[in-house]
Design a protein around this nucleic acid. Structure first.
Lengths: 231, 231
DNA sequence: CAAATAGTGTCTCTTAGACAGTATTAT
DNA sequence: ATAATACTGTCTAAGAGACACTATTTG
């Protein structure tokens, strides 16, 4: 074993967990209790354990810090600039995760305070370490993946109306979509959504909307992208 | 400093360096001289130094092992399964890089043997560590990025004909494109290629082709994707 | 001349996008 | 009835793809 001559690193995973709450694109942040960066907001995350896969570590941290068990999880990028963590040479593997708004999160085992905040607000404020840069990269990834994968489904519950699904795109892209064209697009895109025989009066006003379900589980590429266009 | 209680890792970068040689999609492999995996083929790469950024490390390794100085370089994904390297817990940050065929590579300072081999052949054979998986991820990334970025330009020299550029797509996608439609697409896609006033009789037969240059340097997204369709 | 490659014209089909119009609900 | 949301119809413009045709070279 000659590895002792090589530089030593610590490896963490950090997770940008997204949802749409109150019609706003939000991410989960942790209020750090200890130094370094004690008191600052940070993305949930932590050190990878000796016998642990990277994705496993991300899921464990997510569970420990937020109580979240099931979610879409995708590796975004790895951040390893020297000096990004004053405790030593720490490389962080960043993940993006998505939850439906309905899912409850609770404080983790280490009783760290977890709170949902608008993405815009988080990016405008101060975050611990280089978590601002990590969050930016994750947001960019989510925006892109909305276009050409089924990611939008991860933001809604098991059952949803097309308006709810449309609002996912509108909120994350910050741009309204034409309701009529969106309707047709969704109904004609194979293997994306499938109508149930029920309807739901979401907002209490107007004609009740048909309730849909995802046709497939998980994240997969779309045959034709969802285009970004004004309303 | 309380980091000593955290697991210790080594961090490497591995680079999948691609080109098109003799009309074939090829990648650069190193014949390993030492154990572990001595004698096997591997991707160029090595340990990140204590004060080194990840991308800097990738560029340094590329230079040391292949003599390559300038190239498009993009982080693909990080591989960190326990047991992927028998020397200890090693996390590898994978990069994809692209060269024009014309650029010469020479053996590196440690005199390791570097050789270009068809991607198909490398993926079919045995590679050291999990480099087969890394190469697969890098190939997938390159195939995708051809569609919606200017990546194809990195495979050709400063000056090129549209046939040469078309062959990049054809070889990497394993699929012929319609020459006429490709011509029109390229000439009408703003900010992609710009004709010079010269022509070149590439293959010696047929009408000489107009010589083009890239309109912009570097890697950037395309307004409209290059579509994949049969000839 | 034929053969080969470069490049243009043109037709069809699909789809995005705009927007008008119809359907169904609450108040 | 009115307002609001859900959905459908229809028109237009643009682009992909197929493929015929012209242009320019070598042998």
């Amino acid at each position: 074993m000659h590895t002792s001559k090589y530089p030593i690193f610590y490896v963490t995973v950090d997770i940008a967990l997204f949802t749409i709450k109150d019609g706003v694109f939000q991410a989960l942040a942790i209020r750090r209790r200890r130094d370094p960066h004690g008191g600052k907001l940070a993305l949930p995350g932590g050190f990878v354990q000796p016998e642990e896969d990277l994705e496993t570590a991300a899921r464990r941290e997510l569970l420990e810090e937020t109580g979240v068990e099931e979610t879409v999880l995708e590796q975004v990028r790895t951040f390893g600039a020297p000096g990004r963590d004053e405790r030593g040479r720490v490389v962080s593997v960043a993940y993006a995760a998505v939850l439906p708004a309905a899912v409850e999160t609770h404080a983790g085992t280490d009783a760290s305070e977890a709170l949902w905040l608008p993405v815009d607000q988080l990016l405008a404020g101060e975050l611990a370490f280089d978590h601002r840069e990590i969050l930016e990269a994750a947001v960019e990834r989510v925006r892109a993946k909305l276009e050409y994968t089924s990611l939008a489904l991860a933001f809604v519950g098991e059952e949803f109306t097309l308006s709810e699904l449309r609002r996912v795109y509108e909120v994350i892209w910050g741009q309204d979509l034409d309701p009529g064209n969106f309707q047709r697009k969704m109904r004609h895109t194979e293997a994306f959504v499938v109508p149930t025989d029920r309807t739901r009066s979401a907002v209490g006003r107007g004609r009740p909307a048909a309730v849909f379900r995802a046709r497939r589980m998980g994240l997969y590429p779309l045959a034709t992208p969802i285009t970004r266009a004004g309303s």
